[in-house]
Design a protein around this nucleic acid. Sequence first.
DNA 1: ACCTGAACACCGTTCAAGT
DNA 2: ACCTGAACACCGTTCAAGT
Lengths: 221, 221
Amino acid sequence: MAKVTTESAPQPRIPLSRDRVVRAAVGIADEQGLAALTMRRLAEVVGAEAMSLYYHVSNKEDILDSIAEYVMQEINDVVDKLDKGPDWKQAVRARILAAREVLLRHKWAPAVFETRKNPIPPVLRYHDGLIGLMRAGGFSNDLCHHALHALGSRALGFSQELFDAGDDEGPPPDLAQLPNLAGMLMEVVHDDPDSTIGWCDDQFEFEFGLDLILDGLERRR
Amino acid sequence: MAKVTTESAPQPRIPLSRDRVVRAAVGIADEQGLAALTMRRLAEVVGAEAMSLYYHVSNKEDILDSIAEYVMQEINDVVDKLDKGPDWKQAVRARILAAREVLLRHKWAPAVFETRKNPIPPVLRYHDGLIGLMRAGGFSNDLCHHALHALGSRALGFSQELFDAGDDEGPPPDLAQLPNLAGMLMEVVHDDPDSTIGWCDDQFEFEFGLDLILDGLERRR
DNA sequence: ACCTGAACACCGTTCAAGT
DNA sequence: ACCTGAACACCGTTCAAGT
């Protein structure tokens, strides 16, 4: 993704296009977060007025649909190159972890996915691929269906954490009232000396939860 | 929750208070969705001007924090009444399904949880309770920690579906390009004749996924 | 065909002023 | 102590008008 700041060069010669608008939108979200993605800011980056955007996209929802689709296509491109191998679990696991890597470059994407009400076409394509792997591994169609629900957003590589475990603002919680949590934290933090701030290893926890589900599916196969 | 519409009675005698503001906010979100929750609308419902709200809450973020906390307290109230029994899995399962029931009455709540950056105190209390049950069931602190991550938002009773499976707007996806998905749908829909629209049984799928995880934890205990 | 200026209806929020 | 009017800086969006 091109640096947003260099996009608004002195030469606004490049004509506007739907594609350029979408790419710029992804760039803004990547670099400055979803909240920074406003029609006016987007227009600025692309060297035009906000109203001009409406000639190329129908509205902001359209833009959000498009950037979600853009990221999913990136995931499909990566994932299509993976070779499948004979083991369904290895294949599914590799696919999901590869998807996760893409999403880590577009941290805003899950939030956008969640607000889409119509299915994003390349997500269906992604799921179709997963089903293919599971079918080849001997899953019934029914089990595939349950598996997709059970994986939920994990199928795309993101797990829904309840809050960022690394922010410390506001008063620290009263651990005296939370004996079990306090005990757990003491022990877990003690075991891992890197415990300055974000003391949870997201990648490890993601794989732990994923394997829990995949192992469970294996047993129900 | 009192009907929002009756709240703006001819008598705006009841003085404003933080509590009344928060309850009204929950009411609006319940009945009209999160998007309808604006400062001006909230003021209207409560019989005041938008600016008056700022005397009782510090800003909109404060309101969102508060309504998230409100719902979590409702969950804790319900869950604290459950008796624990000897089986950790039964106890955890019952707790989570009870939490789910509350959340089904406040469908907006997960979206608000996700946007909170500071931990919501009663969520910590809820987790503390879960840890207690798992510790009593023989879990190590380490396994409790992984379990909470693996459960993620499922610990509170909601699973992150990728999109509402019941909306049909826009063009139907091209199933010819999605052979595995098409095959799965045909079979699954065929088996369940109630397949008018929302043909997935959310409650069943939730429990399926939950049990997959709980069974996996049992095995790693 | 492509872009824009002016304008509209909405946000959240501040602040000096009212009771 | 509690509430408000007027105002500000921001949204997304429309539409008639420019090139």
